[in-house]
């Protein structure tokens, strides 16, 4: 099963190669990896999608924690989380296919971000299933290029059951 691990690291040179080197050196997989600075510019957040049994995931989390430039590691699969990925898909369109391409984009609530007489570039955001689905539908039309961000994810805030929440009473 895919595991999503969120890693807060020092935002400085060489840190990415330490993380990547850890995975390659110990034979762990990286399915996807995305990195960007956090609100605090001295730190970056990496979202790593990996696979492995419980023992391997436990080792990955421990080994990541052991890296000196790693500040925090969260295995998102331990709780509820939201994940998203964005893809830019450049579709080659013959005149007779152009309407179909737009229809597909519409169904997925994707938007067209660039257009030429022979291509559309479609932007889609969603979970992996959604992205795979639109790719499957666009493929018969001819995908010229595809750029995916890799997944990013964030833990869901725990929600208290409605009964325990304070009630709002309208005042007049």
């Amino acid at each position: 099963m895919d595991h999503i691990i969120s890693v807060i690291v020092e935002n400085k040179f060489g840190v990415l190669s330490r993380v990547a080197g850890l995975f390659s050196g110990r034979g762990f997989n990286i399915e996807s990896l995305s990195v960007a600075p956090t609100l605090d510019p001295s730190m970056s957040m990496m979202t790593i999608v990996t696979t492995g049994d419980d023992r391997i995931i436990e080792q990955i989390v421990k080994q990541l924690n052991k890296l000196i430039d790693v500040i925090k590691v969260v295995d998102l699969n331990e709780s509820e989380f939201v994940e998203r990925e964005t893809a830019l898909i450049k579709v080659h369109t013959k005149p007779e296919d152009r309407a179909e391409a737009l229809r597909i984009a519409d169904i997925f609530r994707a938007s067209v971000v660039d257009s030429t007489p022979t291509t559309y570039t479609i932007e889609i955001t969603g979970d992996t299933n959604k992205i795979e689905a639109i790719i499957n539908l666009l493929q018969p039309l001819g995908i010229k290029e595809l750029a995916r961000t890799g997944r990013v994810a964030i833990a869901r805030e725990p929600v208290r059951p409605a009964a325990t929440q304070p009630k709002r009473v309208a005042k007049d």
Partner: peptide, 8 residues
């Protein structure tokens, strides 16, 4: 002292 050694 090294958590990675445990259960490796």
């Amino acid at each position: 002292i090294d958590p990675t050694s445990i259960r490796k």
